[in-house]
Amino acid sequence: MNRRNTPTKEAVLNLLINAKKALSHDAIEKQLSIAINRATIYRVLNRFCEDEVVHKIVAEDGKQYFAICKKCKNEEEVKPHFHFRCTSCDTIECLKIPVEYTAPNGYTVASANCILTGTCKNCM
C-alpha cells in the first residue's frame, strides 16, 4: 500500500536504517533529532511492520524491539531468523541463523519469534 511520506516516517526510518542493532520504542524516541509524540512513533512502527519495512522482535520480558528488514536494504528475502538479547548491555541483534521448524499436520505458521538470551561477545 502506498502511504504518504512524512518527516516523522522519514526520521524513524533513517534511524532504523543506520542502527547497528534492533531498537526499542524508548531508544527510538531518545535518538530522534525531532520531537515526535510517543503514540505517533508507535503508529509509524506498526505501519512499517505491516508494510514489512521493519520486523518486530518481542523479547522474553515482553519488550518490543524493531529492526530494519533486509529486503528494505535490497538484500535477500527476509526469512525467520534468530535474535540474540544480551542481558548485560540489553542489545538485541539479528543472527544470520535461519530458523528451521516443521509444523504438525493441519497447522500453518504465520510468523515466528525466536530469541536467544545470554551474554554477547562484547560483554564477555
Rank of each mutant, 00 (worst) to 15 (best):
A59W: 05
E60K: 07
P7Y: 10
H55K: 09
C94M: 05
R3D: 08
I68T: 13
I17Q: 04
S88W: 06
Y42Q: 07
H25W: 05
G62F: 11
N74G: 14
V58G: 02
K79W: 10
N122A: 15
I36R: 09
S33F: 07
I28T: 00
K20F: 03
T108I: 04
M124H: 01
A67E: 04
E100F: 00
V58N: 00
N14D: 00
C123G: 13
T87C: 10
L116K: 07
D90L: 02
C86I: 14
K21F: 00
I34L: 09
T108W: 01
R47A: 04
D51V: 04
A112G: 06
C120F: 00
V99C: 11
E100L: 06
N18L: 08
A22V: 01
C72D: 01
I28Q: 03
T40V: 14
Y65R: 06
A103W: 05
A103P: 00
V109W: 04
E75Y: 12
C94L: 05
D61Y: 04
T8C: 09
C49W: 06
T91I: 13
L13A: 11
I57W: 00
K73L: 15
I68A: 11
Y101S: 08
C69M: 14
L15M: 03
N122E: 15
I28Y: 06
E50K: 10
K79Q: 10
A11I: 11
Q31C: 08
L13F: 12
T6G: 08
L13Y: 15
L95E: 04
I36F: 10
P80N: 01
H55S: 15
C69V: 06
R85V: 13
H55G: 09
N46W: 03
N5I: 13
K56W: 03
A67M: 07
E10W: 04
L32R: 03
K30S: 11
V58M: 01
T6K: 10
M1E: 15
L116H: 03
A59I: 11
S88E: 15
H83F: 15
E29N: 14
N14L: 05
F82Q: 00
R43I: 00
S33D: 09
L116P: 02
H81R: 08
T87I: 15
I92C: 15
P80A: 02
N105Y: 03
L13W: 09
N2T: 11
C69S: 13
N46E: 13
G62M: 09
L45N: 01
T119N: 02
K63T: 15
S24C: 08
N37H: 13
C114V: 06
A59C: 12
V53R: 12
V53T: 15
K79P: 05
D51Q: 10
E52D: 14
I34R: 14
V58L: 01
A11N: 13
S111H: 11
Y65N: 07
A11L: 07
N113T: 13
